[in-house]
């Protein structure tokens, strides 16, 4: 396979930064990364999107936070994290010892002020090459998705954040809207440098014995292979209306899925739920990527972004 690797180019570029490959573990499915280095050398990853970070520490929602679904799961973690200061002082330093490449910070919040304060704290962190705004988390009361479903709010929030941030801003879009293209355009007007999509779909499971919703806060976000076609469609749709780089995600579980998502319009991809059922998931996809490229006659991966739009 090493000979295959030599001739096939998996490199992509995001905001002027060259990534060895387009595979990025999605926020919230990979912790702060370093723990996966117990399982394999995580330097094979294109980058990492860090666990969602807020201004203050958050415990998140009560248990149960997880419910299984056909082809996926519902989660309602509720942005458990130690707060931005500890993320920078402790978690990022631990990650830096085992992962030498630049990463993407992921920021959530309840108010404009919370977002701007948290995002600005990453300005001086060299390890972070971009900040992903989680304006689409369905699991945070009075925040998260509430920001991400109103185009005017999205535009204004991104504009305020761009004023204080020196890093490229990626806006993570919610699929729980009437027309995701409107939100993509709103983020673009606000000054977004890139988009990532899709976040989870709001869902619910009910226990047949008790008739109660399984998740403690009733509903959560559905993700996994079941949402993959929804994600491909939305990435395709957004690619039609914007030239911003798109990071595609939603149920990606194989190198073939990566290629399909890139055909739809993604420059890079994030792998989420798959990390939770296969700890070696990202590594296996990365190892498999040149094999699938060869099979499909793809020499340079960065060439295929949006290919479906031109055939």
């Amino acid at each position: 396979m090493s000979t295959v690797n030599n001739v096939l180019d998996t490199q992509i570029e995001l905001f002027g930064v060259k990534l060895d490959n387009p595979i990025i573990p999605a926020s919230g499915t990979y912790g702060f990364g370093y723990e996966f280095s117990e399982y394999y050398d995580i330097n094979c990853l294109g980058s990492i999107s860090l666990k969602g970070t807020t201004k203050e520490a958050r415990y998140g929602n009560p248990l149960p936070r997880i419910a299984e679904c056909p082809n996926g799961l519902i989660n309602a973690i509720g942005l458990q994290n130690p707060g931005v200061d500890k993320v920078i002082e402790v978690e990022l330093k631990k990650l830096d010892e085992v992962y030498k490449k630049p990463v993407i910070a992921n920021v959530g919040g309840h108010s404009f002020e919370e977002y701007t304060t948290t995002v600005a704290k990453f300005n001086d962190v060299d390890k972070v090459f971009a900040v992903e705004l989680n304006i689409s988390c369905p699991n945070v009361q009075g925040g998260g998705m509430a920001f991400g479903t109103n185009p005017d709010t999205v535009e204004e929030l991104v504009r305020e954040i761009k004023k204080v941030s020196t890093k490229p801003i990626i806006v993570k879009l919610s699929p729980n809207v009437t027309d995701i293209k409107l939100l993509a355009k709103a983020a673009e007007r606000g000054g977004a440098d890139g988009l990532s999509l899709i976040n989870t779909l709001v869902g619910m499971r009910i226990d047949l014995k008790t008739a109660r919703p399984i998740i403690s806060v009733k509903r959560g976000g559905y993700s996994g292979p079941g949402v993959f076609p929804v994600a491909v469609n939305m990435v395709y749709a957004v690619k039609e209306v914007t030239d911003l780089p798109i990071i595609g995600m939603g149920g990606i579980s194989s190198a073939e899925d990566v290629i399909e998502m890139m055909y739809a319009g993604a420059t890079a991809v994030m792998v989420g739920s798959y990390n939770l059922v296969n700890p070696y998931g990202c590594k296996e996809i990365i190892d498999d990527l040149p094999v699938v490229m060869e099979k499909l006659g793809i020499n340079k991966l960065s060439d295929i972004t949006g290919r479906s739009h031109n055939v």
């Binding site: 936070r65 458990q80 939770l276």
Partner: peptide, 26 residues
Amino acid sequence: ARMGCGFGACMGCSIITKSGYKRVCK
């Protein structure tokens, strides 16, 4: 606990302890 991953990645099984949040799985 109801777990997502079972190896510390998802925070699906965190509980509150005297010394902070701990994952049942990790």
